[in-house]
Nucleic acid binder design. Structure first.
Lengths: 265, 265
DNA sequence: CGCTTACTTGACATTCTTCAACCGCAGTGG
DNA sequence: CCACTGCGGTTGAAGAATGTCAAGTAAGCG
């Protein structure tokens, strides 16, 4: 029986064998993108160690700074965003548990956008060197990171479509479908519901809508029996109809792990 | 004098010494991102060889296919785009001379967007292996490609802001500012004007506006004395005012070549 | 010359924003 | 315990921005 050998295993391995996946959302995410060895998982646990709590609506990286570390979200929701001079802001992407804000952007003269929390978050700061070390020693991890980046780019393309040619209700429906799948992938959703402590103003900054219109659009989604909200949770009541409304195609979130045409580089 | 030794040089070097830059837009672009040796330039010229002409409004890569080659634009304007079921489409990015559509996206089960020409184009098809070979043997080229990618991501972020929170006139003004700078960087602009054979429908697909509204917005830009159009050219008459109107910050197009925090990877 | 494609215009409909007020809840300090 | 405060959500009314439809014009091309 497994329990007989349990005392000899380290914690991540034991968790992994008992329930099939790690409690570290970074491991859970990357496991879905490339096969990981126990050593790979271990280094990822080291990267995730030392996480700290961050309040909601707080900046982690300010626009114009030059960070020397990446940030890994372990709990809660953070985002990249840009401000305009007139005070409007645009949220560029959500960072969910397991998502990493890589500081490659340091190549630019200044970082051109900010990183901030939406809800309260648990965030690990990963020094650049630690990340490079992990990637150099663990090719599977490097591979998984590359694939994560490719998915991230696909998500960004979908956001462009959202802002460019979907109606208000379609934008929000599409966003909710995306978030459900991404959160399911890291074990942060139950059935079709998840914690969603994002304000309507922030939803507006995400979807390019005013908070008033977000409010009315949410009411319409509720009226149609597609979602329910409350207690900082979002419950998707009718996923098939929500997906149909948003014309949501899940493919872009799931890279084909089998066919790998780009191991080198 | 230079001409005395000219006969002993190969063509790219001679061009390079005579007028300070290559006629290959890929070389011109990457030169601005990393220092290149003569061997680097030579390999880039090889990549650009064998270009073929493509008609306007033609697909180079169709949505759902799995390309094994990258495409390099040498002349004209191409774009990535996505279609919606109802026929609307969103253009995701412009590929100007020197821009490369890398096929990393083959990681996804299917490529989730199409690549097509806007104007007539001269396009080189670069087999995956040739690209990998060049990158492996020429670290400076690899470095420049990485930086090009980072700039591309910054451009995408700016497009998200465009679609999410700028008005019609600001969106178009911002796009024109971006295109001017990008085209200047590869020598495809004279003063503040450039060839711009993009239809108003396509401008609408780019900016998330209807063609009618694009038309009226262009009229407004002309009326304010900011631009002039005709003969498939765009002339920017008052760049400072256009930039002010768009709140255009050029920084994101110009990575800091001096401070390189990420040579490894 | 006739065809096609792109551009232009006007009238009208719709979507979404803005403004302003109000509600309700949770935290805070007296 | 209660009043106060602040934030987030909700509502209504009015207006601005943008889309749609339909028709007409101009320019390039075989």
């Amino acid at each position: 029986m497994l329990s007989m050998t349990g005392f000899a295993m380290n914690a991540p391995l034991r968790r992994s064998l008992l329930n099939g996946h790690s409690s570290n959302p970074l491991v859970r995410k990357l496991e879905g993108l490339a096969p990981l060895s126990e050593a790979d998982r271990s280094i990822l646990d080291q990267l995730a160690a030392g996480a700290r709590l961050a309040d909601p609506h707080v900046d982690l990286i300010r626009e114009g700074s030059a960070p020397d570390a990446a940030f890994l979200v372990l709990k809660g929701i953070a985002c990249r965003y840009k401000h305009r001079q007139d005070g409007k802001r645009q949220i560029l992407s959500y960072l969910l548990p397991g998502d990493l804000c890589d500081p490659d952007i340091a190549h630019l003269s200044r970082i051109d956008h900010a990183l901030g929390t939406l809800s309260a978050c648990s965030v690990a700061r990963i020094p650049r060197e630690a990340l490079l070390f992990a990637v150099e020693r663990h090719p599977n991890v490097a591979q998984a990171f590359r694939r994560a980046k490719i998915v991230e780019e696909a998500v960004t393309r979908e956001w462009l479509v959202n802002l460019g040619c979907r109606s208000a209700i379609e934008r929000i429906a599409h966003l909710f479908c995306e978030l459900l799948l991404r959160l399911q992938a890291v074990g942060f959703a139950e059935n079709d519901s998840f914690e969603f402590p994002v304000t309507q103003v922030e939803l507006g900054d995400t979807t390019g809508l005013s908070n008033v219109h977000v409010n009315r659009t949410l009411q319409e989604l509720r009226r149609q029996g597609l979602i329910a909200t409350g207690q900082r949770r979002l419950i998707i009541l009718d996923l098939p109809r929500l997906r149909a409304l948003a014309e949501f195609q899940a493919g872009y979130l799931q890279p084909a792990v089998g066919t790998d045409l780009c191991t080198a580089h």
